[in-house]
Write a protein that binds this DNA or RNA. Sequence first.
DNA 1: GTCTAGAATGGAAACGTTTCCAAAACGGGT
DNA 2: ACCCGTTTTGGAAACGTTTCCATTCTAGAC
Lengths: 342, 342
Amino acid sequence: MGGVTIKDVAAAAGVGIATVSRVLSGSGPVSEATRQRVLAAASALEYRPSALGRGLKTRRTGGMGLLVTDAADPFCAELTAGVLACARTQGAHVILDATREDPEAEAEALERLAEQRVEGVIAMPVQRDPAVWQALIRLGLSVVFVGRTVPGLPAVPGVLADEAGGVRSVVEYLAGLGHRRIGFLGGRAADGLAQREEAFRAALADLGIATEEDLFARARPTADSAYAAAASLFQRRPDLTAVVAGGHRLGEAAVLAARELTLRVPADVSIAIVEDVPWSELCDPPLTAVAHPARDMGYRACELLLRAPSRAPGRPVVLATELMVRASCGPITGSPRTGRSR
Amino acid sequence: MGGVTIKDVAAAAGVGIATVSRVLSGSGPVSEATRQRVLAAASALEYRPSALGRGLKTRRTGGMGLLVTDAADPFCAELTAGVLACARTQGAHVILDATREDPEAEAEALERLAEQRVEGVIAMPVQRDPAVWQALIRLGLSVVFVGRTVPGLPAVPGVLADEAGGVRSVVEYLAGLGHRRIGFLGGRAADGLAQREEAFRAALADLGIATEEDLFARARPTADSAYAAAASLFQRRPDLTAVVAGGHRLGEAAVLAARELTLRVPADVSIAIVEDVPWSELCDPPLTAVAHPARDMGYRACELLLRAPSRAPGRPVVLATELMVRASCGPITGSPRTGRSR
DNA sequence: GTCTAGAATGGAAACGTTTCCAAAACGGGT
DNA sequence: ACCCGTTTTGGAAACGTTTCCATTCTAGAC
């Protein structure tokens, strides 16, 4: 039976339940003899203290919620691994849920987490309305944002990647190679890609390169839409010499579209991608990318949640991104693109 | 405050706690007027029923554990997404943990899950000793294995991919292209790659192709070790014309090693990989692979857990794998490998 | 106006812990 | 033998629910 309770252990050891509790939780004074007897009884009965009873009494569950946008996404998966690694060091458990960029799904997940009385939530926030998060905090749970933030919530700690720095470095790199007509593949604002586009524009402006709206393409977060955006961009602007993909899906689309249009990379067009992926080495050519420290971000976020639940950090923690220079970007060539003849 | 209890709601609505409970859980008869009053009070107070109190009383938590070997691994991540998708339909929550192929870590995670009183566990089992799992079942939780099984536990439902069929199909495919000296990149038995090697041998035998031990290489589950194994295999047997990689890590290693040794794929050597990865299309050349229905496997496992917790299935559910024929395998060429001159 | 069936409601017990507090046991000094 | 301080111990309350059961209320039938 699974129904072994502290009472059974107490009876088996011939002591009171209070004593059993003291032995198991290691608090309070217990004579060595009783201690051994209780331990023996507990293991003989295969006793597992109920987290429900304990949580009810102590008002602490040692659990946390983790809300990612998509559990199968490499970035989210890596982030999750980081959170788990940190949680394990503290003996905390992690309730995982995916929001699919859907505010409603997110709200439901938060509701569930609140009912489960987790002590905190690590979230890639979808809902931009601060009220939802404030309600959560009012409920007594601490919140840590990761990967994104919600404006208007300075009191909520966050762990971000230095998106702006990453985008800037890749733009500067491309500009250094001589590129001036650089396309950008982005997404809807809701997909968290807005800041990358923003950073892209800013970097261009700082370099004194004019931005042409024509060089921006936006896709919905599906592979098809990404492909369509990339293909359309390449065809719309045969004169573009480089493209920055704002996410790994968009990067894949760019590679595939370029291949389909028989554009040589990087001879005809340079491709760089924001959000490195494990397979960028394996691509042909290997993809130049801005790498995010996803695992560290998860680890740090979890640390923030567990170690300093109440601290009010002025600013979010920003972890550095790294430009991984590989072979998919090259110097601009004198001759115009040969077109799509094979 | 988060400390709003059912008592507060009862007081605010001017009713007894029993009535509040009836309204909220939808059980028992309540007059429409009180119903509205209670609902109003509950939402005004932002009341969230405590899963702890409820779970304690009802002895059901609506939670399940998910134990994968590595949260960041694409297969595990996809599997996780499937579990989450199914769990969501039932309003269940999922406690995720990673075992890192470490029986000790697995045991700790199981301990935690048992304390949390989850109703079931979906696991990629590491520990092969049935006792651990039997203990868990004796505790009252149901167990579903996914991706692997533990021999000697016929009563535990499982969801597997048709590894044997997948390996067989790729071997037959390669044999059909004329290959006879086919290498295999595998791992330690503990890594769950043994069955693939087994299937590989069986498929070869069925085709009447002799197996040479020299054509087998085994790596520890690190990128370095995989690379070393692949490189060593290629150099040891310059006469081999094809290689089957038993996992995605090994496949990456094979591609990189082939590239490093300037072997042309598939002209000099054909490469096929067991466990498709999202980027196989993007490789050069695109990788022929055996694809596992990871998401479906997760979904099915979760269904098994939630819908039929007590059924005793004779055999595990086996989902089909699919051979994704791409460009990394080609017909055998008459001329021997040109060696590693560029 | 009384009676009764049925609906609506509230009190209290129980779930498995932790922890406060009082009681018991013990040991050493007088 | 007695007392006192210290160490151990056990009983009981509390945590927030659900649910059994008894009670009150409503309304329709006589």
